[in-house]
Nucleic acid binder design. Structure first.
Lengths: 200, 200, 200, 200
DNA sequence: TATGAATGAGCCTTCATTCAT
DNA sequence: GATGAATGAAGGCTCATTCAT
């Protein structure tokens, strides 16, 4: 069972779950499919996870806390435009390079029971609050021209999350170009003439 | 059998399916829940639908063809900005006022079997082609400033579809204001200063 | 609904049932298939039949009483060999020319509930008793050479009923030749040198 | 789990299926009845079988291959009469002592889907080809007097299979006597005076 | 660690039948 | 006559989970 790579069995289970949840959805994925994809019997699976729901929560928690931690680091940036660009860059890169993970987080929240959902939504809200703060700050001192920062926040996030549904490394745009492009779009959305992006 | 409203039983079934599929997902919704929500036994349900999947396809087809028909009407507009604004207006209003329907269409495509998915994806592709054409036209003759029209198309669509996930009629923004706001955002995204949108 | 031929709707139902029961078995045939084959709705079917089981019993009763009546007519024949040949001729012709009907009678007896089965088995027993009597008579006065008349009765009946499973009018043997051949085989089975059959 | 006898659970399932399929037919037997007869829950049943149809096929395959193997052993016999007698002996003993198994094989072929039926029919055809060969050989060199060997083959097989429908060890005839009797009848059918059979 | 065996509950769907119209 | 609508029961099968080994 020990892999040549240092991959833990538990990690293999999470990876398998990620792939299947992303492809067929949480409810569309059976415990036996999970087990087969992980190279275990369905009974053995339960040594590496709690319930199926706890597995989903674990995936979501890991993904969101990682994203949240990275996003919190952008708070150091003083310039609101820099902050926004940094958030977009982080979000787009994360969604493009880990599309399964992000799609599961984005799409399967409703599959959770109330208590589990509460925990996940709290994390997501904290993450979105960082965007909201950046936008508010941009309006206050960064020259952002927006009617409603919260509407723009939602528009921005949906727009950026979308890359997880279509971007592939094989296409015309590489990851750097993608991130740049979305940063430029974001600045346009907040009504800033593309100062930053124009440099590219 | 006879309802106070003129609502058909078949319509009641579709309405129930819409609500449940949107709330819990296709795979998360059981036939018995469907039946209960429609006020029928699970056996009776099958007088008003084919399989569960056919019910989903029927919902998707109705939604997409309606949207597609309305979108095709925008082809009359000569000015590319007008066309884009009309598409955004249509898309946003549709998603905001029928959020369950649009969320089901957007989120449950992977739940379909290959042949059913093919039909639905064809419709969706035809719809998106209208957006692509509008963008291409805008680049050619409407002053749109975009590096990649197809990237912007995806960004725009994700952004606009997002309203189905948060907008409610009870909030600060009414439907007209929402549509206007998104039209303005769209024009910004394509690099046009928001001249036109106000006319809407 | 009235046919150009004088065929009654009730007859059409029986004919459809015959074909389907023979092809897929009683338990393998659904009421809706029956209705479709008869050109009726499943509800309308119930104007022409009782329960599904009663329909089966009706088919069996009609088939068996007809066969029984014809077989009883052979009792007139004095010569045991003539009687046996007449029974074989009747049985083989009936099974060859109405294979569906006879297969249903032969194969679906176990599908009946106890009371229905009792009625059918009674008819069948009366029919087989005529064979037994013919054999007993043949042993007593017809020169039949058999160790056990009842064993031979069963062997004969199974052998003759079998034609319903393979004979078709398109093959090498026409109905007359088939009947003759089986009469000859029957005489051999009872140990009579093929006097009768030899004439052919 | 551990039985007093050495019987496997899987064998218990097959035995239960055999009994029920023989008594009520394949379509007349439900999975829940099967489970109850095997002493399992219906879910547990699926540890020991594939689908219900695969269970039926497994039964048929086992039965037919066993019979076929045994029948092929008779090819060693040079004398056509010996061969025929050996085949009858085998067939009758098998059908008399395993009537459920043989009745299921004989009666439920139509319950199979096309691909499953193809496999079973192939085995049955190979078995019947051995009979045909024996009869052809008997006509060529064994003094068999038959108009059509294929008609006689069918008559013989139906006749011999019939014992599965009536013979019981409690009756007048024990298994040896039954086999002998049918061997004698078979020789009569092919027009050979019953010289050999006694030697058996 | 790992898994065969086990299951109650539930899956989607069809069953034979009834009845108001 | 004829049927659309309706259903309780059952169809075959899979679910997530547990546990003894």
């Amino acid at each position: 069972m020990s892999q040549t790579t240092g991959e833990t069995t538990g990690e293999r289970v999470q990876a398998a779950a990620l792939a299947l949840f992303a492809e067929r959805g949480y409810h569309g994925t059976g415990i036996r499919q999970l087990a087969e994809a992980a190279g275990l019997s369905s009974a053995s699976l339960y040594h590496y996870m709690g319930t199926k729901e706890e597995l989903l929560v674990a995936i979501m928690r890991a993904s969101l806390t990682e994203l949240l931690d990275a996003a919190e680091a952008t708070a150091d940036l003083d310039d609101p435009q820099d902050r926004l660009v940094a958030l977009v860059d982080l979000h787009v890169r994360t969604h493009a390079s880990a599309p399964e993970r992000t799609r599961v987080v984005d799409d399967e929240v409703n599959a959770l029971s109330a208590p589990a959902r509460a925990e996940v939504v709290t994390l997501r809200d904290r993450y979105e609050a960082l965007w909201q703060a950046a936008l508010d700050d941009g309006v206050a001192r960064g020259g952002f021209q927006v009617r409603s920062a919260s509407v723009v926040r939602r528009a921005l996030l949906e727009m950026c999350s979308g890359v997880a549904r279509w971007w592939t490394p094989d296409g015309d745009l590489d990851l750097d170009a993608l991130a740049e492009e979305y940063a430029a779009l974001a600045l346009r959305l907040v009504g800033v003439s593309a100062r930053h992006a124009a440099a590219q």
